[in-house]
Nucleic acid binder design. Structure first.
Length: 232
DNA sequence: GCGACAG
DNA sequence: ATCTTGTCGC
């Protein structure tokens, strides 16, 4: 397994105003009219980040799975200093430097990337999954655990049931998707070069046993381990 | 003006 | 995200 130091990277915005301007500038680069790779083929990579704010340390993990078997093929972690505070709507600036470093440290192509949080389901339609997609050119989708500010009707009880995640203007920005019968749904949205229907299909393919995708479960575990190792 | 608000 | 024990259930 590869572990890298987060390189002194692409300058992080110094203010909220600058961050908003960056989102404005990059939003037009998002590709929304590609369906993306079909589920169960090629590779799927989960990315996640853990923090120790008291010590100002951040750790990211990228875990590559075989999309057909969900068996791990490769993994990498990156550790460094926290570069941006958590601000709702600006999560990407906090997570992306670490995530990019972990992705670059992988020994193979990531294929489709699955991240925690949102893509188009975002106040300015440019969440983490969109941002990461534009910066890497990779197909990316987002799976979040909460509906954020968006509204939805509870999906029917069976696994696979879904209901639209709606913005104020009525636009469907994502979907509440039931990955386990009778269990709280997850909130799926397209990021870059992946359609919403396909994003949901991928999410179901990645949840044969648990509510959250295997990609995020594995990446979550790995980045916590990396953080503990870096902190001790 | 105040609260809510992905991780 | 993170702080945290036991507990109910398959």
């Amino acid at each position: 397994m590869t572990t890298v130091r987060i390189p002194a990277g692409p300058p992080v915005p110094a203010t909220v105003e600058e961050a908003l301007a960056v989102q404005d500038a990059l939003r037009g680069e998002v590709i929304l009219d590609e369906p993306g790779p079909p589920p169960g083929t090629g590779r799927v990579t989960g990315v996640d980040v853990a923090y120790d704010d008291a010590r100002d340390v951040v750790a990211a993990a990228a875990v590559v799975l075989d999309a057909a078997t969900l068996e791990p093929l490769a993994e990498a972690t990156a550790v460094g200093e926290v570069a941006f505070p958590y601000v709702p709507g600006l999560l990407a600036f906090r997570e992306i430097p670490a995530v990019l470093a972990a992705l670059r440290a992988l020994p193979c192509d990531p294929g489709l990337v699955v991240c925690d949080g949102y893509g188009r389901a975002h106040p300015r339609r440019f969440g983490l999954a969109c941002h990461l997609g534009v910066l890497t050119g990779l197909p990316v989708l987002g799976v979040a655990k909460n509906p954020f500010t968006f509204t939805h009707e509870p999906p029917a009880a069976p696994r696979g049931s879904a209901s639209p995640l709606l913005a104020e203007d009525g636009e469907e920005v994502g979907r509440a998707l039931r990955t386990r019968a009778g269990v709280k749904p997850v909130f799926v949205s397209a990021g870059h070069r992946v359609g919403l229907d396909n994003a949901c299909a991928h999410t179901l393919a990645l949840t044969p046993r648990y509510r959250l995708p295997e990609t995020t479960r594995r990446a979550d575990r790995l980045c916590r381990e990396a953080l503990a190792a870096a902190t001790s």
